[in-house]
Design a protein around this nucleic acid. Sequence first.
DNA 1: TTTCCCAACGTTAGCGTTAACGTTAATATC
DNA 2: GATATTAACGTTAACGCTAACGTTGGGAAA
Lengths: 340, 340
Amino acid sequence: MARKSRASKLVKIEDVAAAAGVSIMTVSRALRGVEGVSEGKRLEIIEISQRLGYRPNPNARSLMGGASGLIGISFPTLFNDVFAGILDGLRPAFEANGFTTVVNTTEYDADRERAWVEQVLSWRPAGLVLTGADHGPTVREAIQTRQIPTLQVWDFTDAPIDICVGVDHQNAGYQLARAMIALGYRQPGYVGIQHGKDQRAEKRLNGICHAFAEAGLGAVAEMRMPGSSYRAGYDGFQALWAQAPRPDIVFFLSDHFAFAGLMACQVMGIRVPDEVGLAGFNGLDITEVLPLRLTTARTPRRKMGVQGAKNLIARMHGVSSDLSVELQTELIHGETTRRP
Amino acid sequence: MARKSRASKLVKIEDVAAAAGVSIMTVSRALRGVEGVSEGKRLEIIEISQRLGYRPNPNARSLMGGASGLIGISFPTLFNDVFAGILDGLRPAFEANGFTTVVNTTEYDADRERAWVEQVLSWRPAGLVLTGADHGPTVREAIQTRQIPTLQVWDFTDAPIDICVGVDHQNAGYQLARAMIALGYRQPGYVGIQHGKDQRAEKRLNGICHAFAEAGLGAVAEMRMPGSSYRAGYDGFQALWAQAPRPDIVFFLSDHFAFAGLMACQVMGIRVPDEVGLAGFNGLDITEVLPLRLTTARTPRRKMGVQGAKNLIARMHGVSSDLSVELQTELIHGETTRRP
DNA sequence: TTTCCCAACGTTAGCGTTAACGTTAATATC
DNA sequence: GATATTAACGTTAACGCTAACGTTGGGAAA
């Protein structure tokens, strides 16, 4: 299989040293570009190490305590353009600064996240990016003990582990609901997923409920679906519609749920926005190709990633001033709700 | 910051040993559950280590030659439910077997992939998962030299780096086109992205072209879009429709493009399937909530992940027999094409 | 010439952990 | 009672690499 038969055992620095007829330390210096080796010998050693296919063992390296140039990024899921968008903002900045990124998904499972954080911390990462503001005390302490620069994205919090760039989801929900109330909607419904899965969604719903309560209007009829597929949004809307009293405005977990709800309306012959208003969240690409422009709140996902990466990098360079940023959502008055 | 002020330096096994009044080795044995420690002392040591917040350093562990328990996974992008689906099949199996996964995206850039593979190889991974069958000779040799068990998913190839689980995209395109020809379609169109970005898409298109050429029918009118957003599918269909001769069947890069095309038809008042047939690819969730069920070829993404993970794990356990598998797509006759 | 200096190397001592092999004392065997 | 056995520990030597310090030899300064 391998062209080089000696590769059965991994080639280590010692082998390179032997082949070059120098000491291990000289090879180490030559390969790292540290001074203390003549230029001729350095070139020679580099050539030999490449020919032998030598790769330094980062485990041994980081045992020495050096930082690893590695940034761990954790998202709840990748079945969601929101996180792909944030990642799209984060990664180029990290790569441009010579960091390597490793991505994880937690599937909205706190234990999974904790286990992954432990694992990544053991690699002595240069930095960490976590989603949201809700992490157990274990995670918080583990990170703070090791003093790893850490960015929390997507959600905004006053008490971040380290720094934080995100939107206030409670307020985003509140503002969206206020706008709908201003349009004359009185009977709210909500289609989302089960409790405890998505903390940000719960905060938005809180904001919505608060706005309607504050206005002295009816409680929000909640429809919780087991999954987060398009079908869940579709079925969820139908189930909600079958209940009494019928909502005149339905808020959805996200745009993709709202889209599915819109499709359900189309099939069921429900006129939007005359019979019911639909409001999504996020301002995803998909809203651009719908027959009716969706009313939603656009979240600045790429910008969030870009800004977050920038601030985290500053943090890793020792900047300690105010690096947490709250970004705003942009309300989009679409055609799935009444005109103002 | 930290509750334990002594935590400024990380607590190591030595500290636990000192606190428990035993040797380092006894702590190591106690914590790993290896025999050679009395049950009483074991409990006592575990209690102390927890109180001190001791975490074994896996770098030091894997320095001892043990496998790193790490599996690197590389996808072209995460803005695509296809890869999220495959990952969803892969990961549980890996986690159940005690492996940690790190995910990368290449953005369809071969250089990025190569750089990432180099990086991951230096961590001595237990295994590797790559997307597709097209990797440079550098990547192939780097992996084979180190004898890292490697799975190539999504695409099927006769000459994998190591093992391979996927579908034959050329044939999938061919079969889909054959079915459309059988329905009486004669004038094919295609909406996709620019050359060289997505190898699998090109193979499918090849298959489509081959089927039409074989049947002595017109060439496929290609419309290449710069991006892969929903809007690209939407605009691409409109642009294609404006050309002469108008196609009577349009194949799309993927279901999400086809969905956008369907929305364009709806807005433009084009009757589907009377005026034009639409065919997607993949059988994504979104097709379940469309007003017309989309004609497409379902790819077994989760299954691919599950099977791939299983085979890769077998490979890591030393099995060397036939672990490459070609999976089949399932043709779905929807409502966006004529009835058979 | 002698002394000093300084590139250009080599040696030593870890980093935190575990495999492999001692050691000890109590119990079992004859 | 002498020897063998064994549970329950401790010691030593790696794992692959690098920081810190030691050594060497040739050229510059005295």
